[in-house]
Simulated scan of single mutants.
Amino acid sequence: MHRHTARSLRATAATACATAVAVIALTGCTSGETAEAAATEEEATVIAPGRPGEDSRRLTPEQVRAEAAERHEAPNEADVKYVAMMIVHHEQALEMTDLAADHAHADPVERLSTRIATAQAPEIEVMRAWLESYEEEHGPAADHGAHGSDHDAHRHDHAEMPGMASPRQLAELADARGAEFDQLFLELMIVHHEGAVTMSAEVIAEGVDITVNELATEIAAQQAAEVGRMEQMSEEI
């Protein structure tokens, strides 16, 4: 992806996510730095920005299920597709952060990978809870490759998800060491984050579910801010 195109995508996402501006200003630069890893469903929470004039909320999987049960408008195709695909998208990010935990050379890259894992592991649990609630009410989301407890497997075509690294790129990352690893990790994660921002902007524009909108807004805000930090880091290490 050309750099000017990437910046244009982030600008588009920022416009679509008006409430995300406040999140970036207030929490974007410190999100995850003091948080402990929360990989289990019992510990998993994400911050959902509130509507204008309202405070942000911290959502647990249980709250997601409760809100899903109370909603009056069924999620549309864009909502379901986004959640099913973003689970897989986040899982690949965790695959890359696992490699960074073993092979990152520069301390800033290792700390960054820890922040990414700390943020995205709980988001996966919240999205799984949302999808399970949807499937309990509407049946398996077959059109989106999500089938009950098996929906977190990697079944989507990478071409469907912007920013996904190819198997060859992941193999190259696994084999890289030292400064080469750091640069390749940042390069792949920048593109990966930009893809998540693009996907989030699309569901904000096309989806109808409030919970999905809040999650997408938070993901877009957080990852757009991290792209800027990674670009600077790539120039400095």
Rank of each mutant, 00 (worst) to 15 (best):
M1P: 10
M1H: 12
M1Y: 12
H2M: 14
H2K: 14
R3Q: 15
H4L: 15
H4Q: 13
H4W: 13
T5E: 13
A6T: 10
A6K: 08
R7Y: 06
R7G: 02
R7L: 03
S8N: 09
L9A: 10
L9Y: 12
R10P: 09
A11L: 07
A11K: 06
T12I: 13
T12Q: 11
T12R: 14
A13L: 03
A13I: 03
A14Y: 06
A14V: 04
T15P: 05
T15N: 06
T15W: 08
A16H: 00
A16E: 01
C17Q: 03
C17T: 09
C17H: 04
T19M: 07
A20P: 00
V21F: 03
A22G: 05
V23W: 03
I24S: 03
I24A: 02
A25C: 04
L26A: 09
T27W: 07
T27Y: 09
G28K: 01
G28R: 01
C29V: 14
C29Q: 15
T30D: 15
E33M: 09
E33L: 08
E33T: 14
T34N: 10
A35I: 11
E36C: 15
E36K: 13
A37S: 14
A39D: 12
T40S: 15
E41Y: 05
E41V: 13
E41W: 06
E42K: 11
E42Y: 11
T45M: 11
V46L: 06
V46E: 04
I47W: 03
I47K: 02
I47L: 05
A48H: 01
A48C: 02
P49M: 00
G50H: 03
G50E: 01
R51E: 07
R51A: 02
P52F: 00
P52R: 02
P52W: 01
P52L: 01
E54K: 04
E54D: 10
E54L: 05
E54R: 09
D55W: 02
D55E: 11
S56P: 02
S56H: 00
R58Y: 07
R58P: 08
R58Q: 13
L59I: 03
L59Q: 05
T60F: 15
E62D: 15
Q63R: 05
V64E: 05
R65P: 09
R65G: 06
E67H: 03
E67N: 04
A68T: 05
A68Y: 06
